[in-house]
Design a binder for these strands. Structure first.
Lengths: 145, 145
DNA sequence: CCACTTTCCCCCACTAATAACCACTTCTTA
DNA sequence: TAAGAAGTGGTTATTAGTGGGGGAAAGTGG
């Protein structure tokens, strides 16, 4: 293990973002994420982090789509907010300020493993999300299947 | 035996969780569970433990679904509560504190083998469960079939 | 082109959380 | 009933995470 292969990200980690926009990637996840990865605006109010190989997979799917205006608009936003990230010596990354404000990140953040990506949420938004969705989890599952 | 294959878990084991959240996996079950396994929030107030192969089976069903908002919400909650576990030298595992509070684990716990998974119950909740359900066991079976 | 400002890293120090270690008790089994 | 295995609990050592200062690099304006 160690290479950013087909590993599955799971779990929830509570950490803090400091005044310089730095946040730590939990050590348990660092190996699976690898040294080159992409952070970008996600869906539903959070940020997405993909390993570079996973990022390539996603982009190649979109590339195949016909070149409509909707595709161009989506690609502009999706790609313009994406940034290549690296760790500092302490295992932290630097989140660009546009992404910080998009995800409404204050001090307390939640890092969530969601299969092929990490998500970064503000603690506040995550708690709201959980409150709104966890009670009917089995219903959600039923309607999915 | 030994590899976390298609083994069936049965039986009930009474053990204790200590102040650090450590609890032993009964030695009879360790071989069948393998060295890599997942603990997560279960249903009805207990925790579930799956061998990694069993976990993969479960996840692979969800993975194939189209990427809708419902799926994203479900996966976030489902995966965020799961944790990869390992044994310490004494055969114990460490249960994350969110799961301890969810399952209301105090000192005395019950570990139950339920076919393809283990369940961890607080002694208290287990006793209540048994009291409420054992009397009408034949009725329950009848209504199932 | 130069001076000034701002941003970004690297480094160090401190604290908290986790894992390793070890000693002891209880249960099994021969 | 003795010996080994299984289970429990606490201490110590190590790693992970947080926060801030200072220097290099890049960006801005005269």
């Amino acid at each position: 293990m160690g290479e950013s292969g087909d590993n599955m990200f799971i779990g929830q980690y509570n950490h803090t973002i400091d005044s310089k926009g730095r946040i730590i990637i939990p050590s348990k996840l660092r190996n699976d994420l690898g040294n080159n990865f992409i952070i970008t605006r996600g869906l539903d109010g959070c940020l997405f982090i993909y390993s570079s190989s996973e990022w390539m997979n996603i982009i190649s799917k979109y590339k195949e789509l016909p070149d409509t205006k909707e595709k161009r608009n989506f690609m502009r936003i999706f790609l313009s907010l994406a940034t290549v990230c690296e760790y500092d010596k302490q295992g932290r990354i630097n989140i660009p300020s546009p992404l910080i404000s998009y995800a409404n990140l204050k001090k307390d953040c939640v890092i969530v493993g969601v299969y092929d990506r990490l998500e970064i949420w503000s603690r506040e938004d995550w708690d709201i999300f959980i409150t709104n969705n966890s009670s009917n989890l089995s219903d959600t599952l039923d309607s999915l299947l």
